[in-house]
Nucleic acid binder design. Sequence first.
DNA 1: CACCCGATTATCT
DNA 2: GATAATCGGGTGT
Length: 204
Amino acid sequence: MPNNAIKVTQLKPLSRNFFARPTVTVAHDLLGKLVVRIFDDGSYAAGMIVETEAYTGLEDPASHAYRGNTARVRAMFEEPGHAYIYFIYGMYYCLNAVAKGEEQKAGGVLIRALEPVMGIERMQQESSGHTPHKLTNGPGKLTRALHINRTLYGTDLTRKGPLYICEFETISEKNIMAGPRVGISKAIEHHWRFYIKDNPCVSR
DNA sequence: CACCCGATTATCT
DNA sequence: GATAATCGGGTGT
């Protein structure tokens, strides 16, 4: 079935339990899921997750939550399955899904790249001058293409609304790669970045 | 292709 | 006052 025949209304959001597991497990399992963005005017766009990173909270020196709960990181200490969105380098937003096991106080999965699936023209309205596979091949680029900003902080990603994540494709284990996280200098020994092998939308 | 750097601002020290 | 889970454009090899 071609992608343009998929109806967004038929897609099933992930369950709360999906996110209520260890952050690293959720980061791995989010590959192949679909991020759906419904705009205020009723138009929509969506992309398949092809790259993620796990940030495990209080025990992870690279995590924004490492130094404890603050107004900025509040969402990462609250219920799994909600959006933790942060503003960085004075101009980019990045999207995380709050994910943590019972033992964890905080944790989030950074969505680093998507493969556009629906609403590519709508994404190009937000990010002009990009070929489709370059619209969402980075954490700051996918939020621009999907018009994700502070107003969506804390959004429940398990319920149909302006932003949610659905079941979509199952990725074969042999096509899932792991490596060190990008853009950090601490805890580089952890291979908590996951991506789909040979996918052109992976950020690097 | 490999580095290098500037943009621009919320957040925390 | 320094920093930052980025990006895109520039220069040199």
